[in-house]
Measured scan of single mutants.
Amino acid sequence: QIFVKTLTGKTITLEVEPSDTIENVKAKIQDKEGIPPDQQRLIFAGKQLEDGRTLSDYNIQKESTLHLVL
């Protein structure tokens, strides 16, 4: 699982696999929060994550925290 922290300070927990794409993660966030993926920007280690890449591409491991910017 990974954590996604929103600007409001809320933390969302997501069940993911390293092979999941960023697009996939955004879809999971939409399921939980109702935020359309095209409004979501995910930041990890100061980098904006691209939809077509996977979590493992960015070396995002379990218990990692991503930041969600709208």
Rank of each mutant, 00 (worst) to 15 (best):
residue 9 G to K: 04
residue 10 K to W: 10
residue 60 I to L: 04
residue 16 V to K: 01
residue 32 K to P: 02
residue 48 Q to P: 11
residue 62 K to E: 11
residue 17 E to F: 12
residue 29 I to T: 01
residue 65 T to F: 08
residue 7 L to M: 14
residue 15 E to N: 12
residue 34 G to N: 08
residue 7 L to R: 10
residue 67 H to E: 12
residue 50 E to R: 07
residue 47 K to D: 07
residue 53 R to Q: 09
residue 66 L to K: 01
residue 53 R to N: 09
residue 31 D to V: 14
residue 9 G to T: 03
residue 27 A to E: 10
residue 50 E to F: 07
residue 51 D to V: 06
residue 20 D to L: 05
residue 24 N to I: 15
residue 17 E to R: 07
residue 17 E to L: 11
residue 35 I to A: 04
residue 13 T to V: 14
residue 13 T to A: 09
residue 30 Q to I: 03
residue 5 K to D: 04
residue 35 I to F: 11
residue 54 T to Q: 07
residue 23 E to W: 14
residue 37 P to A: 15
residue 52 G to F: 12
residue 19 S to D: 12
residue 32 K to A: 12
residue 20 D to A: 07
residue 69 V to F: 13
residue 33 E to C: 15
residue 5 K to P: 01
residue 55 L to H: 00
residue 14 L to K: 00
residue 33 E to V: 13
residue 63 E to C: 15
residue 53 R to C: 12
residue 45 A to P: 01
residue 22 I to E: 00
residue 55 L to V: 08
residue 14 L to S: 01
residue 40 Q to A: 05
residue 34 G to Q: 06
residue 36 P to R: 08
residue 21 T to Y: 08
residue 4 V to D: 01
residue 29 I to S: 01
residue 55 L to Q: 00
residue 7 L to W: 15
residue 36 P to C: 09
residue 5 K to A: 07
residue 16 V to M: 08
residue 68 L to K: 00
residue 32 K to D: 03
residue 28 K to S: 04
residue 35 I to G: 02
residue 59 N to W: 05
residue 25 V to A: 02
residue 53 R to I: 06
residue 47 K to Y: 09
residue 28 K to D: 02
residue 44 F to C: 04
residue 2 I to K: 01
residue 44 F to I: 03
residue 42 L to M: 03
residue 35 I to M: 05
residue 42 L to K: 00
residue 46 G to S: 05
residue 61 Q to M: 10
residue 5 K to V: 15
residue 5 K to Q: 11
residue 39 Q to I: 11
residue 20 D to C: 09
residue 24 N to E: 12
residue 33 E to I: 14
residue 61 Q to H: 11
residue 21 T to V: 05
residue 59 N to A: 08
residue 13 T to P: 06
residue 18 P to A: 11
residue 45 A to K: 14
residue 34 G to E: 04
residue 66 L to Q: 01
residue 58 Y to L: 06
residue 19 S to G: 11
residue 22 I to N: 01
residue 10 K to R: 13
residue 40 Q to H: 04
residue 7 L to T: 11
residue 19 S to Y: 14
residue 23 E to S: 13
residue 3 F to C: 05
residue 43 I to D: 04
residue 6 T to M: 13
residue 50 E to Y: 07
residue 44 F to Q: 03
residue 40 Q to E: 02
residue 68 L to R: 00
residue 1 Q to P: 09
residue 62 K to N: 15
residue 3 F to Y: 14
residue 64 S to V: 07
residue 27 A to K: 14
residue 11 T to P: 04
residue 2 I to G: 01
residue 59 N to I: 04
residue 3 F to K: 06
residue 34 G to C: 07
